[in-house]
């Protein structure tokens, strides 16, 4: 079970969190203007790296905030967790 640092609540056990998939994927501003292939790329394609992976986690059983985590998919080492967007805690 991972130990994950919520930027707001501190280190907590993985059971308090839910996983939100790969982070850093921005929703296209004008989906209508995208080709089917471009839209499919946004919708389905993920980098699935061997190594450092940017992911979204939600402190579902705590403050319910979403935040970013950098986790190594080979060693499971979590190198950092961070506030999304402007990086300012509100």
């Amino acid at each position: 079970m991972f130990l994950i640092e919520c930027p707001w609540c501190g280190e907590r056990a993985e059971t308090e969190f839910s996983y939100g998939g790969e982070g850093g994927i921005t929703r296209p501003a004008e989906p209508d203007k995208l080709s089917d292939a471009e839209w499919a790329n946004y919708l389905f394609m993920r980098t699935n790296p061997r190594g450092a992976h940017q992911e979204l986690w939600n402190h579902a059983q705590g403050c319910r905030r979403w935040f970013g985590v950098e986790r190594d998919t080979v060693t499971y080492h979590i190198s950092r967790s961070y506030v999304l967007g402007d990086g300012v805690k509100d």
């Binding site: 839910s18 939100g20 939600n58 319910r64």
Partner: peptide, 13 residues
Amino acid sequence: LGWLESWLQTEWP
């Protein structure tokens, strides 16, 4: 609720 929160927090803060 989680779905709505995820859009508000990650995409449209």
